[in-house]
Design a protein around this nucleic acid. Sequence first.
DNA 1: TTGAAAATCACTCAAAAGTATGAGCATAAA
DNA 2: TTTATGCTCATACTTTTGAGTGATTTTCAA
Lengths: 157, 157
Amino acid sequence: MGLNSWIRKWQSILLYGSLMAILLFLLKWLEWRFIILTHGFEVYAGCLAIIFTLLGIWLSRKLFKPKTETLIVETQVLVKTVQFILDELEMGRLGLSKRELEVLQLMAEGLSNEEIASKLFVSLNTVKTHSSNVYDKLQVRRRTHAVDRARKLSLIP
Amino acid sequence: MGLNSWIRKWQSILLYGSLMAILLFLLKWLEWRFIILTHGFEVYAGCLAIIFTLLGIWLSRKLFKPKTETLIVETQVLVKTVQFILDELEMGRLGLSKRELEVLQLMAEGLSNEEIASKLFVSLNTVKTHSSNVYDKLQVRRRTHAVDRARKLSLIP
DNA sequence: TTGAAAATCACTCAAAAGTATGAGCATAAA
DNA sequence: TTTATGCTCATACTTTTGAGTGATTTTCAA
């Protein structure tokens, strides 16, 4: 509960307290004027009870705020992604290493393992190892499938 | 509001009414015994007021179900699926046949030639022929390269 | 400094992909 | 009717890719 509403709550309590006091005085005044003269004490007490019960109900409804239920509605917003943003979260989740991502990117550009090897200045076998690791981590068995999945996971543009 | 809860509500009201009556009798009894003898009438009325205010609060909280206020929070979810439109012009320029495009699309989804064959109900050799033709027309020598180029030419999503 | 993860490389075998060539069939256009 | 095109399939062969295993070096954080 925020400070503001806390203050408002106690302001309300003071206000209602004052109202109660005024009511009591009113009743006291009425007592001498009419009620006691014409009715018995029980009627007076009954009126008092009813009035303050109603006051209590009113007070309660003012003081205690209704429970708020948050309903989250997702609105889809179509956005033309001009710029590619790597999904670091997915990267972490899959445990893809930097080198493996590099190989994946070059694979996506259509390079053969041989071409990737010469581009990264490593041996063909190294590229094979990296790509195999990528396949394991993406749970696929072919490079085309790996590329497709990686694209859908925002690992490559 | 259901019938059941409606009955319960009026049951409650009767119950609380009875309780109020009992309380009044109790207070009346106490009045003669102690309170009036030792304290002034104002104190008695004050006690009455406080008790019935509390009773009212309690009553209110029991009777009136807390209204659940639904707070709708809208969160925007980015959807980057821009409607894909096949570049018919490029299709005509390259002379890709319908079947070849089909094979290309399935290739892009990461399917093997074998899988494409069974999906299209043709033989593996047929798929090989189609894919070879695709490579020729896209001027590439590998399926990953073909997929990359096709994507850039808006032949596939 | 030490231990774990990452990066590097090799070797083998198997599977998949790609090349080349030829051919049958259907259909639509010339 | 002839021709061209697309789709189908086959065989033979080469190249590339992928799986599995094992090993060494590098890097980086605890």
